[in-house]
């Protein structure tokens, strides 16, 4: 997982509440065997017209937002199913940070597991950031996780809250696996203990 320290990037405004996981990645793309490659289907129904061509109205189809790494949106982002395909699709598109007044619980957790930083900020602040984002390429927004601030294009700073353990994992670029691996010595010690305490434990070996 890539580290998340300071992200200075184009932010795309998506002024809509209750964007559900079906909107983020429709169910028909779940029979895939990959977690990469879903970016082209992110927001499929909003992004493409029925004939498969791009909908020029949709924000992520317009410059400079095609390269957006931050998404500013409204309440309850990511509601619906527990599919991990939703953060996979955002990440594959290039989104590393979503700013909204609130998030659905499972999506919120799944985002951290995949290196995406979801930031909760009050609605009026999200609306201000939305205005900044509308100014396009000249108004990059900066997210500084170390200092826990969002920096607007005019240089003013907005503080945000985050769980300390999650902040630590993102800063270090550790996913859950990376974090657990840091306890390698405890795992090795358990393995040794099990060998001693349960020598009867069978191995599954096929010939």
């Amino acid at each position: 997982m890539d580290k998340f320290t300071v992200l200075s990037a184009v932010a795309a405004p998506l002024p809509e509440a209750n964007i559900d996981t079906d909107k983020i990645i429709p169910a028909r793309f779940l029979k895939t065997t990959k977690r990469t490659g879903l970016g082209k289907h992110a927001f499929d129904a909003m992004r493409y017209r029925e004939d498969g061509s791009e909908n020029p109205e949709f924000v992520l189809n317009r410059e400079p937002y095609r390269k957006a790494e931050i998404l500013i949106t409204h309440e309850n982002f990511g509601c619906g199913s527990s599919r991990e395909h939703a953060p996979w699709a955002l990440l594959d598109f290039g989104i590393r940070c979503v700013i909204a007044p609130s998030f659905a619980d499972i999506f919120f957790n799944n985002s951290f597991k995949n290196g995406i930083l979801p930031i909760r900020l009050p609605r009026d602040i999200c609306d201000q950031l939305m205005e900044d984002a509308r100014m396009g390429a000249n108004s990059r927004i900066t997210v500084d996780l170390e200092r826990q601030v969002v920096i607007r294009p005019d240089g003013s700073e907005i503080a945000f809250d985050i769980d300390p353990l999650r902040r630590h994992l993102l800063l270090e670029g550790l996913d859950d696996i990376g974090q657990t691996m840091r306890r390698e010595s405890a795992i090795s010690a358990y393995e040794a203990k099990q060998k001693k305490d349960a020598p009867w434990m069978p191995s599954i070996v096929l010939d």
Binding site: I177, T180, M181, E191
Partner: peptide, 13 residues
């Protein structure tokens, strides 16, 4: 879930 499947594969925990 799938992230946990990967976690078990990598760490057996």
């Amino acid at each position: 879930g799938t992230s946990e499947v990967e976690h078990v594969m990598a760490t057996q925990t």
